[in-house]
Write a protein that binds this DNA or RNA. Structure first.
Lengths: 196, 196
DNA sequence: GAAGGCGAGTAGACACTGTCTACGACCGAC
DNA sequence: GTCGGTCGTAGACAGTGTCTACTCGCCTTC
């Protein structure tokens, strides 16, 4: 039994991460998480006064993993001597990959009705990451007078693509589940065509 | 007492539309909708076997209104002799305006956990509208070999912007709630800079 | 006109949820 | 050895969505 297993707080969060991966957001009932962690339904209250605070902690874990995923992808791209455009490409794919790998967690992370109050606090984790995004965009568009706006526009496009796919709307609209041409179109639009 | 008030099915949907506008998705409890419609909690079952089917009907109303809103905005723009680019501009603003005017309904419409099964069916309403989008994009980009992909990319960007704003992430990232520069950046990226 | 059938809505039960409160077991400090 | 505090348990409570009688009023039919 590791320290992490001993600490109920961490155990509850881990149980939530596991549950949301297998059963989606609706599997994240307070009692269900407690059961999965092997404690009674009243136990979580000691660490999380309310159900939402527990969900927020689980989502926090998700934001941490997203940050790690993106940072890892960017480090990998940078290590191979990729230019800014290629690094943004890698980041975008890592973002969409994260959403596709854990759609339940991805949904939780942006369900502000479940995280209300702590939502903005949580997403603060991704701000430093956003700044590296901005730096790369500024490198691609040296003459852009508002790189933050351009980056936010690109960021929101990735978000939209991730959710279009999660909702299964891609097939409805384009007749195919393949997100690749859409991602390429989005990146080309925001960053200019890739020179390959 | 109008016909609509007499027909409980329509009355329940209307109650849901009203509730989601004032109290958000979490106000859409089955019993709460029934109360608001002035009937007992068992009554909806006659028309909607399950809670989700009632929610789907409410969301359907939302998709209808979105379609009307966008069609109205486009008709207005077209009537003033606007070119394709300006019409897309108007459509984009109408889309974001719809999301901002009724964030609860907008959230419901894309909560696939609540609408699962009927979600794709619902969104089918917007497909014809999407096709007019594609036509306008093809007009702006006559040499584009995949206008559907380009349109889906633009569409997803608008989606992302709407949700970034709904989550209050704009201030977090750009330091301002103003979506205008982001919308402008997105439209410029996907459609080229406006010639004004 | 009376009787039977049927559809619409009511009311209660059921299992479940999140929250709250009282209780008990444990453990280190004095 | 006893006290105090922490941690988890167990039950109550109001609320939920679903399911199942049951009632009432209307319409058809004889």
């Amino acid at each position: 039994m590791t320290d992490q297993e001993r600490d109920l707080r961490a155990r509850l969060v881990a149980a939530g991460v596991e549950l949301v991966a297998t059963g989606g957001v609706q599997a994240l009932g307070l009692r269900e998480i407690a059961r999965h962690a092997g404690v009674s339904h009243g136990a979580p209250r000691r660490y999380f006064p309310t159900h939402r605070e527990l969900l927020a902690a689980i989502a926090q874990k998700g934001f941490g993993r997203l940050t790690d995923t993106l940072a890892g992808a960017d480090a990998l791209a940078a290590a191979t001597g990729a230019d800014a455009r290629s690094r943004l490409d890698a980041l975008a794919r890592a973002y969409l990959g994260f959403a596709a790998a854990g759609p339940g967690m991805f949904e939780l992370m942006f369900r502000h009705d479940l995280l209300e109050g702590s939502g903005a606090e949580l997403r603060r984790t991704t701000v430093p990451l956003f700044l590296t995004f901005v730096g790369l965009v500024a490198e691609v568009h040296p003459d852009c007078d508002d790189p933050a706006a351009a980056t936010a526009a690109l960021w929101s496009n990735l978000h939209g693509l991730a959710q279009l796919r999660a909702w299964g709307s891609l097939r409805l609209i384009t007749g195919s589940e393949d997100i690749e041409p859409l991602l390429r179109a989005a990146l080309d639009a925001h960053l200019g065509p890739a020179d390959r």
